[in-house]
Design a protein around this nucleic acid. Structure first.
Lengths: 207, 207
DNA sequence: GTCTATAGAAGGATAGAC
DNA sequence: GTCTATCCTTCTATAGAC
């Protein structure tokens, strides 16, 4: 008896963990069942197939990642303030979800069609407004033209997302960051470093 | 008869393609055999197991990626020149190997021990010399302290690597980059954008 | 060295009892 | 709704002929 849907939720949460860790092809239904504390047959009772279970999970995780990435830009503050707030909150979010970036990026690269569910969510006109139009004056003051906006946007999100996606590459490059505590400290430092770095680059253009 | 080792090479190349596209867990020995134009049994004759074949391939691809990333820093030029050269050549390299970053990063995250083969190759003292010590004066002029070096390094490689790793996320964020031609143009533009951006940030610090 | 055939294990999915 | 038992396909790996 499960009128509360709590079994479905347990399955969903277990699946989220396993898929995020192992990826779609690496995940095993058996492991999901084990972590949910139920047996394999129930997985199929609730979600039919591995692929359907994965789709359900992925949609939520993808949304989770994008909402965090964009929600900050919706506020009524200056671009400079958005910049700092974004880096603070996004890095803070990723410190709690360090495996999310590589998982999402890899699954998307395996199957770009997985993004479909999100395309409805991202309103590009609105996004353009939040990021550029609304700050056109401020950004022009920094010598940023409409054409440079995509470069700037990609650069911005790369400051927070890349170090997590490249966590184990960084391990090799910088042995002092082998330890997770050190890495987390690095990412905390990065909040301010990145904000200053970007502002310095923009202000220099100003002249 | 294969005294020239060309069958082994055909297998190796086919395996490189398939593993890079599908990842370790997603790759199928059958597909590798098909692309190599031989049959499955031969794969095992030459490489024993899927895992051993993968290790052989991965080591080469990992090395390929790191060599490109670091070789530029070995030259006898100023930091500013290294910066431009790195972005030019690294982006050029990745335009020819666009799937390499997400593959390497994902496999490393699944199995960090895969980096072992490389740790011998990367001499950290030498690297520190090439990147920092040798340019200590120039970098101090930009207000970069020894402590900021890892932030700067990660930032630098993120300019080139991240957009490729996040190719399909960028597709969602920026619909104008759906088309691969547009994306490649974006990456070509990025060579100069990134160099200017970093130099602007550094020069601004100078004051 | 290369092939065909097949063993053997793993994993996704279903039947059927409770 | 949940479980046990089992089917069936897929995939890695090997045996053995040429």
């Amino acid at each position: 008896m499960d009128s509360t849907g709590q079994t479905e939720l347990r399955i969903f949460n277990a699946a989220s963990e396993v898929f995020e860790e192992k990826g779609y092809t690496g995940a095993r239904m058996q492991e999901i069942a084990d972590r949910a504390g139920i047996n394999k047959a129930l997985l199929h009772y609730y979600f039919r197939t591995k692929e359907q279970l994965f789709r359900a999970v992925f949609q939520v995780l993808l949304k989770k990642m994008f909402e965090k990435t964009f929600s900050i830009f919706a506020r009524e503050i200056t671009f400079k303030e958005k910049l700092r707030l974004f880096l603070d909150e996004h890095i803070e979010f990723l410190l709690k979800n360090p495996k999310l970036p590589i998982f999402v990026l890899n699954e998307l690269s395996q199957n770009p069609a997985l993004a479909e569910g999100l395309k409805e969510m991202v309103n590009h006109d609105e996004l353009r407004d939040l990021v550029y139009t609304r700050h056109a004056k401020e950004l022009k003051g920094y010598g940023i033209k409409k054409n440079d906006m995509s470069q700037l946007m990609v650069t911005l999100v790369s400051f927070s997302i890349f170090p997590f996606a490249a966590r184990d590459m960084i391990r090799i490059m910088l042995p002092e960051m082998e330890d997770n505590k050190k890495f987390n400290a690095f990412m905390n430092t990065r909040k301010e470093f990145a904000a200053n770095f970007v502002m310095a680059a923009l202000k220099h253009n100003k002249k």
